[in-house]
Amino acid sequence: MTHLASGMRAGAIGAVGLLACGVLTACGSDGDSGGKGGKTSSAASGGEGGTAAVRTAYRKTAEEETARMTLRTETSAAGKSAVAQGEGAIDLEDGDSTMSISAGGQKVEQRVVDQVVYQKLPAKQRAQVPGDKPWIKIDLEKAAAEQNSGSSNQINDPAQSASFGKGITDRNTKKVGTATVDGVKTTRYRVTVDMDKLSGAAALKRQVGPTVPMDVWLDDQGRIRRQQITMGIKPTDRSDTSAAPRKMTVRTLIEFSDFGTEVEPEAPPAGQTTDMTGKLGKRQS
């Protein structure tokens, strides 16, 4: 589970952390919060069998090593919403990935290599980055350390939800039904993640409350084909008295397909990158 959590976080952090966080200046609204295709037939069962299936799904998925991945993140606050969508390929163990991300009518090329995110920005955004270089980079390990390596980074990045499996218990796992995801028959489970069972529980509960809902769709081999998690995030910095929204809702939908696909991203030349680790939050504030 640890490997898949790391891989999902690294592979998706660009869309979650860099594009969707622009909700305060987003234009318009997108009310579509559902997944791609797939009709679900209703059923209601769960218990110990369902809990075991969901918990082992992370290991079984990571054992496939690589996959195609699509990502959709919708961030809403103060009556506005921003949507980021991405597609590409990911190494499920170490998080190396290549992805094309679209948000706000613009597209970004992203690569993740050795836990460092590289994004090639559109010309309009590039002019706002020091050095006017085509690529920016963010070192995920350094960024986590600057945020005290703790729960706030886990919450601000919903793709880290693989680690939430530790908070799933028998009493809050339910089999919702079946659905076809990208042509594959799946079983859908709805779980409630108990924050008290996760590390950094106190901080997590302050930001998202005592529980978080999560849905997973598993194929007949027990692998994750789709995962959706929705969080209402409350700010913890009470020193900020600005008129910025005091709460945002983030819904992230991830889908996996084509297990075993080739993933070999390369870091851009150092001379074409600007290191933005620890600077993005300050520029957004």
Results as ranks from 00 to 15, higher is better:
Leu24Val: 15
Leu140Val: 00
Gly177Ile: 00
Pro130Thr: 03
Ser285Asn: 14
Lys185Ala: 11
Ser76Val: 10
Gly177Val: 04
Ser152Phe: 14
Lys234Ala: 10
Thr274Ala: 04
Ser152Lys: 15
Gly200Asn: 01
Ile233Cys: 07
Thr186Glu: 06
Gly95Phe: 00
Gly28Thr: 07
Gly47Ser: 01
Ala203Asp: 10
Glu141Met: 08
Ser239Gly: 09
Arg251Phe: 08
Gly31Val: 13
Ser76Pro: 02
Ala244Val: 08
Pro213Cys: 01
Gly31Leu: 13
Val184Gln: 01
Phe259Ile: 10
Ala144Trp: 10
Pro158Phe: 04
Ser239Leu: 14
Met231Asn: 09
Leu280Ser: 08
Pro134Ala: 02
Asp196Pro: 10
Pro268Leu: 00
Phe259Trp: 02
Thr56Ala: 09
Glu74Met: 12
Asp32Glu: 09
Ala12Gln: 13
Gly49Val: 15
Asp182Arg: 14
Ile136Phe: 06
Gly131Ile: 12
Val208Gln: 04
Pro269Thr: 05
Ser81Phe: 06
Glu146Tyr: 11
Val208Asp: 01
Gln221Glu: 12
Lys133Trp: 09
Gln106Asp: 04
Lys197Gly: 03
Ala5Pro: 03
Val193Lys: 03
Val212Asp: 00
Gln147Ser: 13
Ser161Glu: 12
Ala127Trp: 05
His3Tyr: 15
Glu264Lys: 11
Glu109Pro: 14
Thr70Gln: 10
Ala162Leu: 14
Ala103Gln: 05
Thr192Arg: 11
Gly86Lys: 09
Ala179Thr: 11
Lys36Trp: 14
Val176Asn: 08
Glu255Asp: 15
Ala162Ser: 01
Leu204Phe: 04
Asp275Arg: 12
Met231Arg: 05
Gly105Phe: 03
Ala127Thr: 14
Thr192Ala: 04
Gly95Tyr: 06
Thr40Pro: 09
Ser161Thr: 12
Ser242Pro: 11
Lys107Gly: 08
Asp30Asn: 12
Thr274Ser: 05
Thr273Val: 09
Glu141Cys: 00
Ser41Leu: 13
Lys124Leu: 07
Lys107Cys: 07
Met248Leu: 07
Lys282His: 13
Val181Gln: 01
Gln85His: 07
Ser45Thr: 10
Ile229Phe: 02
Pro158Asp: 00
Lys174Arg: 14
Ser42Tyr: 09
Glu262Asn: 13
Gly105Val: 03
Thr180Asp: 06
Gln207Cys: 02
Arg59Ser: 15
Gln160Glu: 07
Gln119Thr: 13
Gly50Lys: 04
Val108Phe: 01
Leu92Gly: 02
Asp196Tyr: 12
Gly28Pro: 06
Gln106Ile: 02
Gln228Ile: 14
Arg223His: 01
Cys27Gly: 14
Asp196His: 07
Lys39Glu: 14
Asp30Glu: 09
Arg111Lys: 10
Ile138Ser: 05
Ala20Pro: 11
Asn153Val: 13
Ser242Arg: 08
Ser257Asp: 15
Thr187Gln: 09
Met195Pro: 00
Lys279Gln: 15
Gln227Ala: 08
Ser81Val: 02
Val193Arg: 01
Gly35Arg: 06
Leu18Cys: 14
Thr241Asn: 05
Gln228Pro: 05
Val176Met: 08
Tyr118Leu: 12
Glu266Gln: 14
Ile136Gln: 03
